[in-house]
Nucleic acid binder design. Sequence first.
DNA 1: TTGTATGCGTTATCAG
DNA 2: CTGATAACGCATACAA
Lengths: 339, 339
Amino acid sequence: MATTLREVGARAGVSAITVSRALNNTGYVSLETRERITAAISELNYVPNALASSLRSNKTQLLALLLTDITNQFWTTVARGVEDAAMAAGYGVILCNTDEKQAKEAQYLDLLLRRRIDGLLVAPTVDSTGVLQNLQRRAVPFVLIDRAVRDVAADTVRGDTEQGAYEMTTHLLTTGFRRIAMISGPRTVSTAEERVAGYLRALADAAVTPDPQWIYYGRYTESWGYEAAQRLMAQQPRPDALVAANNFIAMGVLEGLQNLGLHVPDDVALVCFDETTQFKTARFLTTVVQPAREMGRLALNLLLARLAEPQRPVQEILLPTELIIRTSCGCQPQGGGPA
Amino acid sequence: MATTLREVGARAGVSAITVSRALNNTGYVSLETRERITAAISELNYVPNALASSLRSNKTQLLALLLTDITNQFWTTVARGVEDAAMAAGYGVILCNTDEKQAKEAQYLDLLLRRRIDGLLVAPTVDSTGVLQNLQRRAVPFVLIDRAVRDVAADTVRGDTEQGAYEMTTHLLTTGFRRIAMISGPRTVSTAEERVAGYLRALADAAVTPDPQWIYYGRYTESWGYEAAQRLMAQQPRPDALVAANNFIAMGVLEGLQNLGLHVPDDVALVCFDETTQFKTARFLTTVVQPAREMGRLALNLLLARLAEPQRPVQEILLPTELIIRTSCGCQPQGGGPA
DNA sequence: TTGTATGCGTTATCAG
DNA sequence: CTGATAACGCATACAA
C-alpha cells in the first residue's frame, strides 16, 4: 500500500538502511546520496511508518494526559500547555477524561499500555494508588499533575494551594468576616485536604476557632457546590463567607445562593480556586489562580526529562498561586466585624 | 522486556497464534484451552502490543481531532463528545490545536500520518483545501466538523448557523433594533460566511437595507472582537445592536465596550454564537447555542461508519441550533424603534 | 560511507 | 479446533 523505506532506497539506488540513516541523521551518509534520497522521498510521497519504527525502537513518541474532565477550564488550560510543549518536542498526546472514576482510569490505562505510550501525565482520581503502583512496577514513567498521592513517590507538578487557601481565608478575615465556611472536594484528594489545611491555618493565625460543622468535604462538581450552599445557608448561625475549593463548586454555590435569593457579595462573600472567564467578567469573585498552562508545560518537560534520564531523582515542583482580589470593594461583612 | 504472545502460549501449552485467536475471538478455540490461556495471561500480566498488531493489521485504533483551540469552550465540549464516543468504541484520540494556522495543521498531519491513524476529525483552518485533498489522495478517512470546505466533498457535521444567525438577527429586529452590525470571523471560513448570510437574510426579510460598513470580517478571537467594537462604535451613526459571530469575539466586544464606557444591554445590544458559562451567568446575553457535545459524538460515529464502509455515500449532517433569549427584558432599543 | 542479516510482536494465509 | 510459516516496515548489530 504505502511506500516503504526499501522502495525509496530502490529509487535512490541505495539500500533501505541508508535511507533510514539519512532520515534520522544516524550514521554517515554522503551529501550526494542524501540528495538522491531526498528526491526519491518527495517523488514517492514517502511517509515513514512510525509503527514499525516504534516496534523496533521501543519508543512511540506518544504520551497521554489523564485528567478528570476537560470541560473544566482549569484542565483545558493545563491540557493546552501540555499539548504545546509536546508538539514542540515531536510528541503526540492522547487525552483521557476519567471523570474522577477509577474504572475509567483503569480502562484508559489498559488502552494506553497496549499502545506502549512512552509515558503519561496523571491527575489522579479519588483512589489511584493501586493503579500508579502498577505503573511503577511496569516501569512506565509518569508525572503527577495537580495532585499528590500518598504512598506514591513520583515526579509531581502542582500548585501550592495550601498557601493559596491560607491567603484567601486570611483575606476574608482581614476584611472582617469571621463565620467562614469551607466547601471542599473529595476527602482523599490531596488538593481538597490541602485547601482545608490552609483554611484552618489562617483561622488559627487569626485566633478564630474553626467550627467542624462548617467544613464540608464532597466532590469537585457544580452539583456538590449547589447542595453544600443550600445546607450551609440553612444553618444557624449562618456563615457570612464561603470558601469554594474549586471553580465548579463555586459555580454551583452561586446557583444555590441564587436559588435561596441570596446575593454575592451583598449577602454572603464567596472566594474560590481556579480562574474562569466567568469569574473574570463577574468582577465580584476573589479567586486564587494557579498557573495552569505553566503547570502543563512544566509537567510535560519533567516527563521528557525523566524519559531522557530514568534514574534522575524524583522532583516535586510546587508552583506559587496568585490571589486575585475582586470582592473587597463592594463586599462588607454582615456582622461580627473586626475585633 | 514485556511478555509476548509466544510466552503466554508456552505457559498455556499452545502456540502463539492460538492465544491471539482466543484474545481477539477470531477463529475457534476450545473452552478448555481458552481457560488455560486466560490463566496464563493473568499470571504473566500480559499486555498485548498494539504496535505489532497494528503493523500487521493496518489498523491502529487511533484517531485524531484537529481543532483551532481547545481553550474555546465550544471546542472543549466538542472534544469531550468525541472523546467519550471514541472511548466507548475502543479508540484513542490525539488532540491537536491548530490555532487556525495552516503550518501547525500541516505539521500535525505529518505526525499523524506517520502514526498511521485510522482517521481524523478536522475543523478546517482558514485554508485547508490543499491539505484535505492530500488526505483524500492518500485515502485517509476524515470527517469535517463545524466547518465545510469549498471543493472538498466529505462527511460533515456542523450546526445550521445560517439559520441561527437569521434567528438572532430577527430577534433583534423584532425587538426594535434597526442599526445592527455584524462582527464575523475569517472571510474564507464557512461558518463566518454563513453567519453573515443569515444576518443578511434576516435584514432582507425585514426590509432593512444592509450597510456594508457594518459588516466586519476578521478573526474568531477576543482581540478582534475588541478592535471591531472600538471601530464600530466610533462610526456615525452608531450601531444600536451587535451580532458577534462567536463567543471569543463576543468576549472581546464586551471588553471593548467597557473600555468605551458603554454597557450591554443598556447602551447597545449584543447577541452571539456559542454558549459559555460566562454568558449563562451574565444573564443578559442572547446566544445561539450549538449542540457541541452532540456534534462531537455524531462526527465520531460518522467517522466510524466510514471506517467500517469506505464506499458509503458522503453524508452531511446539519444540526439545528437553539436561540436562547436573555436580553429582551432589560434591553430596549435606543432609537429608530419599530416602524 | 554503505550494506547484510536479523528480529521487534503480531496476524494473514495456508495446512492439518 | 490448532499449528507452521511468512510478512508487516523498520532499526540494531555487525561487516565491509
